[in-house]
């Protein structure tokens, strides 16, 4: 017994090192296997608060660009409104319009943004108090940005589109061919489209939008344009898509909540049983 105590006493530093290293590895493995870390993430008061105060200062520098983008988006939306002429002709129509609403948009601001790593995350200045929950879409006028992953009361961390774990259903804008959007971790403006059927005729410059087969993104959110195609053995080996968004410079975003998500998931789970 005394010998064991002596051993522990002698190697106590190594034991401490070993135990702490195990804890660190546990956090790392948890981060890799669940694609989000439950404990170690930037959605908390300390990190969120610090990032928030720095961003509120830094955002003054980009006010001009942001304003131009917002004005452009506004004019596009107004044009769309005029074209569609959304004036309900009868009472029934207006009810339909209201009750068939499937998505709800909330505005938010990115307060921290990574893009140099293999698995990049964003921190957003809205949280549970603003009814943000995990697995909501993060977009702006130019297209997709990410998916929320962890929420605290006031802050949310989100998986960026530049994250090797990021996957979203995508389609060609001009034809209903669906594939999956991923990122290979190499370039911050290029994402990859996989699983596109070989009969789809793809050309460089084709627009890729979200497919709407997931409960997260509405269909038709912009992603990017095809920049590079590798066609071998009668199938698409590699399709590079250059993002419309410059993910390095995103600030004001929308978070999209799918009002039917629970219903869809419940149905899908019952099918799996």
């Amino acid at each position: 017994m005394q010998f064991i105590l002596y051993l522990i006493q002698k190697h106590r530093n190594f034991l401490l090192f070993f135990v702490l290293e195990l804890i660190a590895l546990f956090f790392t493995i948890q981060f890799h296997s669940y694609q989000k870390s439950k404990f170690i993430n930037s959605a908390n008061g300390i990190t969120g608060g610090l990032y928030n105060s720095v961003t509120s200062f830094r955002s003054y520098l980009y006010l001009k660009d942001e304003n131009t983008m917002l004005i452009k988006e506004n004019s596009e939306l107004k044009n769309k409104l005029l074209k569609k002429a959304v004036t309900p002709t009868s009472f029934k129509d207006s009810i339909d319009l209201r009750f068939q609403q499937k998505f709800e948009y909330a505005s938010a601001k990115i307060i921290n943004n990574d893009f140099h790593k293999n698995n990049n995350f964003l921190t957003i200045n809205k949280g549970k108090k603003d009814s943000i929950s995990p697995y909501m879409a993060v977009v702006n006028a130019k297209g997709i940005i990410g998916i929320t992953s962890n929420t605290s009361n006031n802050y949310t961390s989100a998986i960026s589109v530049l994250n090797t774990h990021f996957k979203v259903n995508a389609r060609l804008k001009k034809a209903a061919y669906f594939g999956t959007l991923t990122w290979n971790g190499k370039s911050y403006d290029q994402v990859q489209l996989i699983d596109i059927p070989r009969q789809a005729s793809l050309k460089i410059g084709d627009t890729i939008v979200t497919g709407g087969r997931s409960a997260i993104f509405p269909e038709g959110i912009l992603i990017g344009s095809v920049s590079d195609i590798e066609y071998q053995n009668n199938r698409y080996e590699k399709i590079n898509v250059s993002l419309f968004n410059d993910v390095r410079n995103v600030s004001n975003v929308y978070i999209i909540k799918n009002l039917h998500k629970q219903e869809i998931q419940k149905l899908e789970n019952s099918n799996n049983d």
Partner: peptide
């Protein structure tokens, strides 16, 4: 110290492991 940096950069326990080593 490493864990605090991980907290800020959403990287699991990567920096904690490195600093400890």
């Amino acid at each position: 110290f490493g864990l605090m940096i991980d907290l800020f950069s959403n990287s699991g326990g990567v920096n904690a492991a490195a600093c400890l080593l």
